[in-house]
Amino acid sequence: MEQKRIFSFSAFPYRQKITIDGFYFGDTSRKTVAVVGATRGDEYQQVLISGLLIKRLKQLEAEGLLSSSSGIVVIPSASQFSMNVGKRFFPVDNTDINRMFPGYDKGETTQRLADGVFKAVKDYKYGIQMASFYLHGKFVPHVRTMYTDYQDNSIASDFGLPYFVIRHPQPIDTTTLNYNWQIFGSTAFSLYSGFNTTIDMPAAQQAVEAIIRFLVKRGVLSSRTPITEGEKTITLQDTSLKKVISAAGGFFFPIAQLGQQVRKGDLLGRIINPVTAESSEEIYAGSDGILFFTCSDIAVSEHTAVFGIADTSSI
C-alpha cells in the first residue's frame, strides 16, 4: 500500500491545509478500481467503510491475494474540512462537492476539490462510491447506478447485495460523481449502507464484504480470498419505487420494518400530533412490495415521502 496526497490547497491563515489522500494498492500504473468514501462532512459511515476497506486490502495485499495486474485506489474522505466542524456541506458557501463533478481546476473552491478527486479516480475501469441520499432516511442496503447510455447492469450482482437500483437521472444528477464517472467511460456504482450521521458497524462490515466480493468476482483479488456467499440481486428501476406520502404534519413513528414484505392496506406507521399526542394519521401501504425506504426524521411536514415500497411483482 502507498498513501499519496492527491490534492491540497492553500490553507486559510489560522487553519491547516485542506488535503485529500489516496491509498493505492497493487500496480499503481493500472487503473482497475477506484473507491470514494465521504464527500460530505456527515458521512461518518462512508468514511469508516473506506477505512475498514483499506485495512482489509492491506492485509490481503500482504497475503499475496491481490492480482499483480490490477491497481486499486481508495479515497476515504474529501470532506474533512466539513467533518471537523460538523457540517454536511462545504462550510463557507454550503456547496456540495458531490454536486460539482467533473469539477473545474480554475473554478470555485468545491469545483476545485471535485476536480482534485475526479482527476485521481477517472479512467479507472470501475468506480465505487459510498453514497448518501439527499433526504433523511434509511434504505435497504443496495447498489445503485444512474441510467446512462454507458451503464453496465450485468455485473452489479457481483456485489452480492439484495438489490440493484437503476436511477433515471434528473438534471440535478448530472453533476454527481456516479454520473460523470460513466460519462468519462468508467462503470460506476454507488453503495447505500446505513445512515450518515451515525455509525452502523454491521452495515459497514456488510458494505466492505460486498466490495471484496466484487473484487474477487472481477479478478482483482484471488479466488482464494475468503469471502462469504452474497445474496441474489434483484434489479429495480427507481421509477418502480412507490412513495407513501404523509397527509399530516407531526411526529413520525414507523411501525413496519425496513426490508419487510408488505401488502396493500398494511399499517406502516403513524403521525402523532406533538402537542396532543393524538394520532393525526395512520399510514397504510398503497401497494404490495418490499419496504425499501423509511424516513428517519422525527418531525415531518405534510407531503413528505415517509416510506418507499419497491414493487417486486414484475420480477
Binding site: D96, Y134, Q170, S301, H303, T304
Partner: peptide
C-alpha cells in the same frame, strides 16, 4: 439538501419542498 432553485418543476416529489 438541495438549493430550492434546483428542484423545479418539482416533478420528482419526495418531500414537501418538491410538492411546493
Amino acid at each position: 439538501d438541495l438549493d430550492m432553485n434546483r428542484i423545479f418543476p418539482g416533478s420528482d416529489e419526495f418531500s414537501a419542498n418538491e410538492y411546493v
